[in-house]
Design a protein around this nucleic acid. Structure first.
Lengths: 217, 217
DNA sequence: ATGTGCCAGATTGTTGAACAAATCTTGTGC
DNA sequence: GCACAAGATTTGTTCAACAATCTGGCACAT
């Protein structure tokens, strides 16, 4: 599930604590809006208050936590405007990456692998895994641009989105319809029809945004 | 020049220290590769080691500092590959924003203001200010997309670029030729020729990248 | 002379306790 | 019921200490 322990250990206590909190949030154990009191977390995480605050800083920078001065840090609650913003950015990043991707030969191995992962997760009715695979698919699209920086930003973005997923009551409705679309996009790209693929992707994003905004408050 | 003092004060000691370090780096007082020892900075910045480390975390996350475990933090040195990556991202972000910008009416006030600032700075032979205005111009282009998130990322990006500027021996050669290009881009956009504007911008970025990479080691 | 191993010094990573400042809670009086 | 002030709680920041790790130089064997 998590990475090798040695790697996590070498990363230091602060990074380890941040990783644990990140997982808890994406898993839905920490609902959006939850206040994270420093004193009540030093025990469970096994780190001191200073180290915990350093972990908080990391997660605030990533947008997963929000700090309100002298009041504490809270698990981020994404407003409709923020979700719309995320989809606007995704449209720019993903569509450009796909439209300008190399077609000779296509680099679709990562995308196809993500689609297969999603299929397996659906067969196992593991909706959380479906969401993860789905996000992984779109990270692979951005990876086509070949920019380390964009990869990092996209990863941050999908983490925030998965945070929003955690608040949705029926995850199957949120994720199931999109696996077929991903497959279609991949196929169009593999056939060298990058413009078609980009158009399909744009449709996907519009639909996904609508479902997302509709299933919130 | 810097923001209102009250704002900085309310932001807390950590943010204030980060701001000071950021300015020092962009000003060139801290050359890329310089090691920032914790003990030797607590005095000048007037903060404790813990708070300083929190400031370091922020700047590491922004890409201005690099942390090497148990060795310290260093002012980032951008490799050619990283600079190329920055320009790749800029091309995607800026060209898309400009190509899809509203033309009825055009929102060019910010861009035009940045061009005027650059002109004034040239007249005063203040090359650092020219670089700042120039970067501000491109932040305004991205702002056309209307995404808070993209604005933030672009700001980060220009900060890193200005860090690289600080290492260039002749700043006038680096910045002077581009003000005219910015003016041309703005005019094309104001006339509603967004495709032309985007093409000009693409040329600009190609040229700028070449100059940048050429004037490094 | 050169390479290896080791030790002492310095720096970072982390902890715990302490205090000031701000916020939240409680209880009082009207 | 509501305004208001005192106390309790929590965050923001500092300080001092210790463990873990890296650096540089020295003795030593080859």
């Amino acid at each position: 599930m998590t990475g090798p322990v040695t790697t996590v250990d070498r990363a230091g206590s602060a990074a380890r604590a941040a990783e644990q909190l990140r997982n808890s949030m994406i898993n839905g154990d920490l609902a959006p809006g939850t206040r994270l009191a420093e004193a009540s977390l030093t025990g469970p995480l096994g780190v001191s208050r200073n180290t915990l605050r350093e972990a908080f800083s990391t997660l605030v920078e990533e947008g997963l936590l929000v700090r309100r001065p002298h009041r504490g840090v809270f698990v981020a609650v994404l407003s409709s405007a923020q979700i719309a913003d995320i989809y606007r950015v995704r449209a720019i990043l993903e569509c450009t990456a796909l439209a300008e991707a190399p077609v000779d030969p296509p680099q679709a191995a990562g995308m196809r692998a993500a689609v297969e992962d999603a299929r397996r997760a659906i067969a196992a009715s593991d909706w959380r895994a479906v969401g993860t695979s789905n996000m992984h698919f779109h990270e692979q699209i951005v990876a086509l641009a070949g920019s380390q920086r964009l990869n990092g930003w996209m990863k941050q973005l999908t983490a925030e989105l998965r945070l929003a997923f955690a608040g949705v009551p029926d995850p199957s409705a949120l994720h199931r319809p999109f696996v077929a679309m991903n497959d279609e996009i991949t196929r169009a790209y593999e056939d060298g029809r990058t413009d078609t693929a980009a158009d399909l992707l744009r449709d996907y994003l519009r639909t996904s945004e609508r479902v997302m905004l509709g299933s919130l408050p």
